[in-house]
Amino acid sequence: MSHTVLVCDDAIFMRTMISDILTQAGFEVVGEAETGVQAVEKFRQLKPDLVTMDIVMPDMGGIDAVREICRESPDAKILMCSAMGQQALVVEAIQAGAKDFVVKPFQPSRVLEAVQRVLG
């Protein structure tokens, strides 16, 4: 069975792109969220194998969402999607429990490598 993924990003563009990269590699994108609150709710509901999480989102940012998800499910596998220049935030996300990160603009190979590491 293929791995299930929840894609969290406030931009449809980014969600689509990430979903495409992952779907083509054989993953099953089971849900999308555009706010941190939604991310937490959908995680509870869908229990995906993997979450990709944008950092800056309205209505609870990605880092708080990571914190919230990891509080309930410490083994959650969360991959942060960051922009250059967000190093401090990425570090904060890692400390909150995120397992890895990729940096925009995305290169599919890097995204998939990171996904493998997270699921590994």
């Binding site: 960051s82 250059m84 967000q86 190093q87 990425v90 570090v91 890692i94 400390q95 890895d100 990160f101 940096v103």
Partner: peptide, 13 residues
């Protein structure tokens, strides 16, 4: 590698 510092944090974890 992008964000060397964050990567270093991951390695440390």
């Amino acid at each position: 590698a992008p964000l060397l510092g964050a990567r270093a944090h991951l390695a440390l974890r």
